[in-house]
Design a protein around this nucleic acid. Structure first.
Lengths: 293, 293
DNA sequence: GAAATTACCTGACTAAAGTCAGGTAATGGA
DNA sequence: TCCATTACCTGACTTTAGTCAGGTAATTTC
């Protein structure tokens, strides 16, 4: 990695933690210890499960319990049973707790506004745009790809999203029975692989490779969640699937796509794919691409 | 302020503190309490004065002293007298301390690299560029402008930088005796004002307004430190000086500039100034501008 | 040259953050 | 049905962070 890039990132880290940290110290306490304040804020107006909060804030179970007890004593939260599982507990904010939450919410707004306040309009817009970029790409950088069974819960969830999107975008609609033949449902090494992309544990994309001839692979089911689009995840999935095909010793990968998926076509071309003749009977395919590995 | 902008800033704060914070926790401890680690890192290979460290890390003097003692016990730092002032103390890293510092330095690099590692080259470059933007503009947003005596230490320091830069940039060089007539040395309300721009207490720019006729002000000595250029500070200084002139009830402001200062000319035009005829005898002036308030 | 100020130090605190071992009740798999 | 696991709780800690009141020696101010 470039030395200059690393310097920039380090300067960024330094400046940002300094500036934002200083402001947060000034603002977000409201006389309460930081731990309690964060816990309260994290519960949010919709409530949350203790387990979830512990995970999000990375707390020891004893510590979390104590924080909860303290907030309860202050009359800010109410703890109830989980509907389905009697061991788990659901925390919700009381009336008072909601008021406190709103106060924190307002302070967060003020904090954000104060960061921008001294800049002129043009520079403010630039800062906000750059922040949006950083945020999006930083999230993207946290996405991990992993090979998983294609019938796992998250894999199936991704496929559902994928098919729903096809149905919405194809002019002709999309019928799973026609477009997703059952012989593809289970792919596994060494005849293919199903990749799931996760951000903080939650699936945000997928892609699949399956053998389609002696030394040829087919790439299918490439899907990227709208929440992380525009940050290169599709490219990463594609590159990883190609790498896997290469490991298997395959010489080519090919894929088909629908005319409605314009960005996808552009991406395939950019990744070195070229158009070939129809090689399958997929009724939804309008274009066919291939790449030598 | 725009609701959307505030949302973006809040999302940015959240994502950044989460991602970077999580990584820093993982990395930057080396088994040591965070306070000690930060203190050690802040001392740096060149050493530092205790006072300075206390200021930078915002520590209570007792606390700082204790941290210092602890690092000393661990054989990481040596504390010596200040050359000129026997009350102050200078801290330097020992051999061992330097090794530790390098370890932290290396970890910081790794941390930065790990942020980028999973992105492709193009997106990585975009992230780094956006980070540089955020960093620059966030620093700029922390700059405060204040009216100060034009013979104060920081004001004089700024002017020195300003004159040195003129000398370097003017084709014909710059002679303070010719270019900076002594009658301008002291400006104060209600006949003018000297603005100093500070970032974290350190001066990074200046600008001056002085009466030059019944209801006319002249703007002079606009200087912005190279460390904060490109973030709109000059525009802010100019706008503030105009606002002051308006408060005084003046109707016009004017200024002169040298042909070598191209960005300055562009900025004046953008701020609504138009060229007028020569109005003074400044031997270094090539253009004269005016703006009605 | 005395008095005030400054830079740092020490001891005695407190509050907050975090850890650990051992509980109880609910749940789920063999 | 029993036994392991899970989700949470409690009590008894330790560590870290931070504050405060008073010191001492060097320096500055009047």
């Amino acid at each position: 990695m470039d030395r200059q890039q690393i310097e920039t990132v380090r300067r960024f880290n330094r400046t940002v933690t300094q500036r934002i940290g200083a402001l947060e110290d000034g603002y977000l306490h409201r006389g309460r210890p930081l731990g309690e304040a964060r816990f309260l804020f994290e519960i949010g107006p919709d409530g949350a499960e203790v387990q979830e909060l512990r995970g999000r804030l990375n707390l020891d179970s004893g510590y979390a319990s104590r924080l909860l007890r303290s907030l309860e004593r202050q009359g800010l939260v109410a703890v109830g049973r989980h509907v389905a599982d009697g061991r788990r507990r659901r925390v919700t904010l009381t009336e008072t707790g909601l008021t406190e939450f709103s106060a924190y919410d307002g302070l967060s707004d003020e904090l954000a506004a104060s960061l921008l306040s001294s800049l002129g309009e043009a520079h403010r817009a630039r800062l906000v745009a750059a922040m949006a970029d950083v945020e999006r790409l930083l999230r993207a950088a946290g996405i991990m790809l992993e090979i998983e069974p294609s019938d796992g819960a998250d894999a199936r969830w991704c496929l559902e999203q994928y098919f729903a999107e096809l149905a919405a975008r194809f002019e002709e609609g999309f019928d799973t029975a026609l477009g997703a033949s059952s012989d593809e449902v289970l792919v596994a090494p060494p005849d293919g692989a199903f990749l799931v992309a996760r951000l903080d544990g939650a699936p945000v994309g997928c892609g699949m490779l399956r053998r389609d001839g002696e030394a040829i692979g087919e790439i299918k089911r490439m899907w990227v969640s709208p929440s992380v689009r525009g940050a290169g995840l599709a490219g990463r999935l594609l590159a990883r699937l190609e790498a896997i095909a290469r490991e298997y010793g395959w010489t080519h990968v090919r894929l088909d796509t629908n005319r409605a998926l314009l960005e996808a076509q552009a991406m395939y071309r950019k990744a070195g794919y070229h158009a070939i003749a129809r090689y399958n009977a997929n009724p939804y395919a309008d274009f066919w691409f291939e790449k030598a590995l």
